[in-house]
């Protein structure tokens, strides 16, 4: 299993009485594309943050690629995330004052062992396959359209060839045409690199793109 959650419980420190996550068991196999849906505030983003080691659970095991995230220290989790987990969000995926290439290079600096020249080459390949035209590569990303920004974000998330890609409502700010375009490109690359995809959205219209569609409430037992 690429992702495995066992007996995970999580609550925020400022609201310790309400357990936002309570998952007995949930797992994602290698190469799966999972769409997790649910109403806002149901804990979808929290689940993603726990999976990326951005949040640590009070109880339970979080295993990614056979490694126990809950046993790592903060530094190890940061390093693990840089090497193995890519993220795409609804907005704010890029440093606005850096250009596309710089954003992608920045993402690569935190991952271990890559030549800078090969990063640049790979970045241009990714941008080409994501239909970002070269004249947009050196503009500050704040000057790009939302659709372009989200495509650069895919390149940024995939530059370290992570085994796991986590997407948090990345299409919610896009219109239908841009959304489908975005998903086609994303899934094309995910297929090509055999990346495991966990995609969170409230939009079930995109369910056709995924191999598994689950409501968060199916595996997250909320306790009050």
């Amino acid at each position: 299993m690429t992702i495995e959650l066992h007996g995970v419980a999580f609550s925020y420190a400022n609201d310790a009485t309400k357990s936002l996550l309570n998952i007995d068991h949930w797992s994602v196999a290698k190469g799966e594309r999972v769409l997790v849906h649910g109403p806002s505030g149901s804990g979808k983003s929290t689940l993603l943050n726990v999976m990326g080691g951005l949040l640590t659970c009070s109880v339970g095991e979080v295993t990614l690629l056979g490694e126990r995230l809950d046993r790592m220290n903060a530094r190890q989790r940061d390093q693990f995330r840089a090497n193995h987990v890519g993220y795409v969000f609804q907005r704010f995926n890029l440093v606005p004052y850096l250009n596309a290439i710089e954003n992608i290079e920045l993402a690569s600096t935190f991952a271990a062992g890559k030549q800078r020249s090969s990063v640049r080459e790979e970045a241009t390949n990714l941008l080409h396959s994501l239909n970002v035209i070269p004249s947009d590569w050196s503009k500050p990303t704040s000057h790009l359209s939302m659709g372009q920004q989200q495509r650069v974000a895919i390149a940024r998330a995939l530059i370290n060839t992570p085994e796991i890609l986590i997407a948090d409502e990345p299409t919610s700010s896009l219109d239908a045409e841009n959304r489908d375009n975005f998903l086609r490109l994303l899934l094309g690359l995910v297929d090509e690199k055999n990346t495991t995809l966990v995609f969170v959205s409230h939009d079930l219209a995109i369910a056709q793109y995924f191999t598994r569609v689950q409501a968060l409430s199916e595996f997250n037992k909320e306790h009050c």
Binding site: G52, L54, A74, R75, D78, Q79, F80, R81, A82, N83, Y87, F89, F92, N93, L94, V95, P96, L106, A107, F110, A111
Partner: peptide, 15 residues
Amino acid sequence: QEIHLLRILGAPPYY
């Protein structure tokens, strides 16, 4: 935004 982004990318707080 930058804090969020850099942390996501695996940047430790001391960065």
